[in-house]
């Protein structure tokens, strides 16, 4: 059986908020390394991979591998009943047809108990090769979100170019064009506010802004985001948490 306790409900609430517009039904795979999820969007353009590691749980017990087939919209309805600071306990049997969720406030005088019906989800699993990326950019997640939102008002696509000059996001649309260039600017006192660029080789790729804006819903998970790029392979966007991560992969667009 599974028994997993999070000190703060906000961790799972934020993860679900971050991915629910990308995927609808997915398996939460529970095993002795924690809770993992991998799912593609319907159009097979984007993939989300999530891992909540056992170290992030106040209590974690999972005797055998359990797949929890969850509709994320339904899960979000139940999670709405949890306050951010509530302790959350997830419980499931070995072949469960429901997931039990218990939310307890810090004063320990309120216990909320919910059951969420599970579903059988036959999900394909993709092997993601280890990749040496041509360019890796670490920057404030709020700034990346702002750039994606601003450019999405002008165009459907963004060209991302990483050179030794910096990383340039540019787009062209019906009303005009826009570009934002970031130069390497490490912040010694507050590293989460700096921008670092590791460049092995120049990279130039084009991506759908609709998806990037969607990924930015994970900004609440981390102050920083890591963007990894190589020519002609999917982009990797990673939001690292204290004990886990949410990663998004996005297939590039191909020539006009």
């Amino acid at each position: 059986m599974l028994e997993a306790r999070l000190e703060q409900s906000s961790v799972l609430k934020k993860v679900v908020d971050a991915i629910k517009d990308l995927v609808q039904d997915c398996n939460f795979d529970c095993n002795d390394s924690g809770i993992q999820l991998q799912a593609m969007d319907n159009s097979h353009v984007a993939l989300v991979a999530m891992h909540l590691k056992t170290e992030g749980f106040a209590l974690y017990r999972c005797d055998r591998n359990i797949a929890l087939g969850i509709n994320l919209v339904s899960l979000q309805k139940v999670l709405r009943a949890a306050q951010n600071e509530d302790v959350m306990t997830l419980k499931a049997e070995d072949s469960p047809d429901a997931l039990s969720l218990v939310f307890e406030n810090s004063e320990n005088d309120r216990i909320s108990e919910y059951d969420l019906k599970l579903m059988d989800i036959d999900q394909e699993h993709l092997g993601i090769p280890e990749t040496e990326y041509g360019a890796t950019v670490k920057m404030p997640s709020a700034e990346f979100q702002r750039i994606c939102r601003d450019l999405s008002l002008l165009s459907e696509s963004v060209a991302i170019e990483a050179t030794k000059e910096g990383i340039k996001f540019s787009c062209t649309g019906d009303i005009g064009k826009g570009a934002v260039t970031l130069r390497q600017n490490p912040n010694v006192e507050k590293p989460e506010l700096g921008t670092t660029i590791e460049l092995q080789e120049p990279v130039a790729l084009t991506f759908s802004l609709k998806y990037l804006v969607n990924f930015c819903k994970a900004s609440g998970l981390s102050n920083t985001v890591t963007i990894s790029l190589s020519n002609e392979v999917p982009l990797l966007i990673e939001y690292e948490m204290e004990h886990g991560y949410v990663r998004f992969y996005l297939a590039p667009k191909i020539g006009d």
Partner: peptide
């Protein structure tokens, strides 16, 4: 508008 790739072109099913 450029055409969109599919992730299956890059990642294999396991």
């Amino acid at each position: 508008t450029p055409l969109q790739n599919d992730l299956h072109e890059f990642f294999t099913m396991v």
